[in-house]
């Protein structure tokens, strides 16, 4: 509890939404009116806060990097292409102030926005619905995803179809990064892009909708050979799915980092260790 008193910032963060934190002095009070906002005495606010800040940072970074700066800093250097821009879609028809990333980003964006895990994360951190378990939700009424606008979340299925296409595309980018000016090689950048493709695959293939598609809709896995195979695939997807949250975060961080890395190399802020020597 002491931590809260010291850290004015956290209190302000929740007060923004009208949630009063239970502090030492008010705890007695809220006990007396049975529950108050919550009777929890642990640091329940820590996870939503961390998640809230994390998502915020990513959104800020990606907007600035991909949409605003877009063409104004280079997203490609040597064999490396930032995953925000993969596959590169570029024509002279569109003006230079429009970033090519926006032709691509809508797909992963809608996928992540409607992802069951991220929904949970931002419902908790931003909508405070609820901020944490057994902590009172500030809103006065609630209809969940049953009405407009949140009913839109049901498009996740289709966003997933779209996202699946990106799995081979990003692998393609990763493989390309081992090949430059006719020479096969390897660099820190190629490793990062490969890791990016790997984590993104784990995230995408562990998707709840994908899990449903491959086997979740069946009630029996033993009727035919085909069902037996689907069970095997379903099992694999299920084991990815059990850690969907970890895949979600690691793939998010790596995609941002890959982008940053490419920019930094392109801007000559850092040097990429690789077998080709310099790209310049």
């Amino acid at each position: 509890m002491k931590v809260i008193n010291k850290n004015q910032f956290i209190i302000t963060y929740f007060n923004l939404y009208g949630v009063k934190l239970v502090t030492q002095s008010t705890q007695e009070e809220s006990l007396l009116n049975r529950y108050g906002k919550t009777l929890r005495t642990d640091r329940w606010w820590f996870e939503p806060l961390l998640v809230g800040i994390g998502l915020f940072l990513f959104i800020m970074y990606s907007t600035v990097s991909a949409a605003i700066l877009g063409n104004y800093w280079s997203y490609e250097i040597g064999p490396y292409l930032s995953p925000f821009f993969e596959p590169l879609f570029y024509t002279d028809v569109i003006p230079k102030w429009v970033s090519p990333a926006i032709f691509i980003l809508w797909a992963p964006l809608s996928f992540r926005m409607t992802c069951y895990y991220y929904r949970r994360a931002y419902y908790r951190s931003y909508f405070l619905s609820p901020p944490a378990c057994a902590v009172r939700e500030p809103a006065n009424s609630y209809a969940g995803e049953s009405t407009v606008p949140l009913i839109v979340q049901n498009i996740h299925r289709f966003a997933m179809y779209g996202a699946l296409i990106f799995v081979p595309i990003l692998w393609n980018g990763a493989i390309r990064s081992f090949y430059w000016e006719g020479e096969i090689g390897i660099g820190v950048g190629s490793l990062i892009l490969t890791l990016n493709a790997f984590l993104l695959s784990g995230y995408t293939l562990g998707c709840h909708s994908f899990r449903h598609l491959v086997g979740g809709g069946l009630n029996s896995f033993t009727g035919s050979k085909y069902q037996v195979i689907r069970k095997k695939v379903w099992d694999m997807v299920s084991s990815l799915n059990a850690h969907h949250k970890k895949w979600a975060w690691s793939s998010l961080i790596i995609v941002g980092f890959s982008d940053l890395y490419v920019h930094m190399v392109a801007a000559e802020w850092i040097v990429d260790f690789n077998t080709w020597g310099s790209f310049f």
């Binding site: 949970r120 419902y123 908790r124 609820p130 378990c133 057994a134 969940g144 995803e145 049953s146 009913i151």
Partner: peptide, 14 residues
């Protein structure tokens, strides 16, 4: 009411 659930997972937690 399946669509009222916003999958915030408190049920699983407890």
């Amino acid at each position: 009411g399946l669509d009222y659930c916003n999958i915030t997972k408190c049920c699983t937690d407890v």
